[in-house]
């Protein structure tokens, strides 16, 4: 579903990604591990072009989204992203956070159709071969109603229905992150990118967030996860990538990679992080 071909990113003289090639297939849960500064977050952020790659291609659903001429906004709607710092919109309450993008984008589409229909009607006045109008079976009120229903359903799922109308500043880190996750779910994404989703959380809240991610994984959502939680990586991943110095050093199934690493750099890293736990 996502084909990454020789992806490169440099900041000035510093080359952060030195040619990454990999394929993320539908339903896969890819976990990226590696020491800090290895470029794993940059790689993830390049996948939805939050950082513009300086070289290479990212083919998502058949389109090279690394190309600057592509309207990236359309493709980002199909890719959810969850951040380390949650990034809930502080000026909006929980349900507005979830509804903002779906409502805006659907009303925008509705408006575009209406405008097109208007021109088709005018055109039809002057020609005998009538063009068909786009079908419009919704209104703005209906869009809002549906988005609200969906948002409440998602909130119910994570047991935070009673928090629908409070502002993010009143929530705990774990609650914020779970809401950030369902906010990205509200767009019905094909894939969700997780950028260290538990690194900014208190230890006691890590569990609830990981549980939710695990649930989504079990439902068959495609995921790319950057994390330091090795135990979680082992449980959820279908494939683990080990990155170092801007390259994928080793990739394998979690069982193989954790218990039988081949590359010396992987061995060294794993011995360090696993001995701590």
């Amino acid at each position: 579903m996502i084909d990454v071909i020789d992806l490169r990113k440099r900041y000035g003289d510093l080359e952060v990604l030195k040619g990454i090639t990999t394929t993320i297939r539908e339903g896969e849960k890819v976990v990226i591990i590696g020491p800090s500064g290895s470029g794993k977050s940059t790689f993830l952020r390049c996948l939805n072009c939050l950082e513009d790659p300086t070289g290479g291609e990212i083919i998502f659903e058949g389109v090279n989204i690394a190309d600057m001429r592509v309207d990236i906004n359309i493709h980002r709607r199909r890719m959810g992203m969850v951040f380390q710092q949650f990034n809930l919109f502080n000026n909006k309450n929980v349900i507005e956070n979830i509804m903002l993008a779906p409502v805006y984008i659907r009303t925008q589409e509705l408006r575009a159709k209406k405008i097109k229909n208007f021109f088709i009607r005018i055109r039809n006045l002057f020609t005998s071969n009538k063009k068909e109008l786009y079908e419009i079976n919704t209104t703005k009120a209906k869009i809002i109603e549906e988005a609200k229903e969906q948002a409440l359903k998602l909130l119910r799922r994570i047991g935070l229905e009673d928090k629908a109308y409070v502002y993010p500043s009143t929530l705990s880190g774990g609650q914020k992150q779970r809401i950030a996750i369902i906010r990205s779910l509200a767009m019905n994404p094909k894939v969700i990118l997780f950028d260290e989703p538990t690194s900014a959380l208190d230890p006691e809240m890590v569990g609830e967030v990981l549980d939710l991610i695990k649930q989504l994984a079990d439902e068959g959502m495609t995921m790319v996860i950057v994390t330091h939680e090795m135990g979680f990586a082992r449980k959820v991943a279908t494939r683990v990538l080990f990155m170092d110095e801007g390259q994928i050093v080793e990739e394998n199934t979690p069982e193989e990679l954790f218990s039988n690493p081949k590359h010396p750099r992987t061995k060294e890293f794993l011995s360090k992080v696993l001995s701590v736990h």
Binding site: L50, R77, M81, F89
Partner: peptide
């Protein structure tokens, strides 16, 4: 916080919409 802009962009909103709404 620049994260606010990033989150809005990651949801597929354009630069101007993210700016004005968030």
């Amino acid at each position: 916080d620049p994260g606010q802009m990033e989150a809005a962009r990651a949801l597929g909103l354009s630069y101007w919409v993210s700016m004005l709404k968030v």
